Simulated assay, not measured.
Amino acid sequence: MSFGTVSLVSVIVCMVLNDCIDADKQTHKDFLSSYDSFKNICHKIGWEPKCTTQPIKYCQGKTIAFHANLSKRLTNVPKNTIIKFDRTLVNEGNGYDPNTGKFTAPVDGVYSFAWTYHTKKGSIAYLCGFVDGKLTAYVGIENQSSTWENTSRNLVIKMKKGSQFWIQIFHATVQLIHEEYSSLSGYKLSGC
């Protein structure tokens, strides 16, 4: 350490000791003034915390999560149909609309989505995830050999406020989607 740095550190130590001795006598204003002096000295010697001191603007502690099922069995569902999981069990933040089958991000963030669907033997079923009209996550089954089968997929993606996510039939008409074993859920990952 240079002589200047040693001197500066000595001054800081003396100021801290002096303020600790007089702590009972300090007013709120005096304390803040001393604190600002210490911050300025630390800045001058090049020592500053590496973390941000800016408040997180959009983290308000609100939960954004939904889970929805089908209320009835779907048959002969044409290609390009958006699946409306219309029996909503949870919809914190009101991002999911069961009437359209679309989730709209209420705030910017990273979101996780998971969906599963139940089909019967011989099925060809591609239920893919779309974000703002773009096919983003593929999943499907073709010429299913078991009597009944679940197919699942998940997606973690960064979304802007107002971006939309939904599940849509891709590739071909789906003969049957069983209601009791088919669902869609999603939530915002915590960033705070």
Results as ranks from 00 to 15, higher is better:
Thr75Glu: 14
Asn76Trp: 14
Asn99His: 11
Gly162Trp: 12
Thr119Asp: 13
Gly93Ser: 09
Tyr58Trp: 01
Thr88Val: 08
Thr119Val: 15
Phe85Asn: 07
Ser7Arg: 05
Thr52Phe: 08
Leu74Val: 04
Pro55Asp: 07
Gln175His: 13
Cys20Asp: 00
Gln54Ser: 10
Ala105Cys: 04
Glu48Thr: 01
Leu32Arg: 07
Glu179Ser: 08
Ser183Met: 14
Lys102Tyr: 06
Lys158Leu: 06
Leu127Val: 11
Cys42His: 03
Asp24Val: 14
Ile64Ala: 06
Asn80Met: 11
His67Thr: 15
Met1Asp: 05
Gly109Phe: 00
Asn99Gln: 09
Gly109Glu: 04
Ser112Met: 01
Thr151His: 13
Lys161Met: 09
Thr116Tyr: 08
Val174Ile: 09
Leu135Trp: 13
Ile64Leu: 10
His178Phe: 13
Ser112Thr: 06
Lys134Gly: 02
Val156His: 11
Ser152Pro: 05
Cys128Pro: 02
Pro106Val: 04
Lys158Thr: 06
Leu70Pro: 00
Leu70Trp: 07
Asn94Gly: 13
Gly133Gln: 03
Ser33Ile: 01
Ile56Arg: 05
Ser145Asn: 15
Leu70Asp: 03
Ile167Leu: 13
Thr116Arg: 14
Lys188Gly: 00
Phe38Tyr: 12
Asn76Tyr: 12
Thr151Phe: 13
Phe130Arg: 04
Leu155Met: 12
Pro78Glu: 14
Asp97Leu: 04
Ser190Cys: 08
Cys51Thr: 13
Asn154Asp: 11
Ile83Trp: 07
Thr53Gly: 10
Ile82His: 05
Gly101Gln: 02
Cys20Glu: 00
Arg87Gly: 03
Thr104Ala: 02
Leu8Gly: 00
Asn69Ala: 09
Gly101Ala: 02
Val11His: 00
Asp22Val: 05
Ile41Met: 02
Lys158Glu: 09
Val131Ile: 08
Ala68Asp: 11
Lys25Arg: 15
Lys84Trp: 10
Gly61Ser: 06
Val90Asp: 11
Lys25Gln: 15
Lys50Thr: 04
His67Trp: 14
Tyr35Ala: 13
Ile169Tyr: 08
Asn76Ala: 14
His171Lys: 11
Lys84His: 10
Ser10Trp: 02
Cys128Ile: 09
Pro106Thr: 05
Thr63Gly: 00
Val131Met: 01
Cys51Lys: 12
Tyr181Cys: 13
Gln60Ser: 15
Lys72Asp: 01
Asn143His: 12
Glu48Leu: 04
Ile45Val: 00
Gly101Glu: 00
Gly61Thr: 08
Asn40Val: 03
Phe66Glu: 07
Lys25Cys: 15
Val107Thr: 06
Arg73Ser: 04
Gln26Leu: 13
Ala172Tyr: 15
Gly122Arg: 14
Lys62Leu: 08
Gly162Glu: 09
Gly46Ile: 02
Ser123Val: 09
Gly95Asn: 12
Thr63Gln: 01
Ser185Ile: 00
Tyr111Ala: 04
Ser10Arg: 03
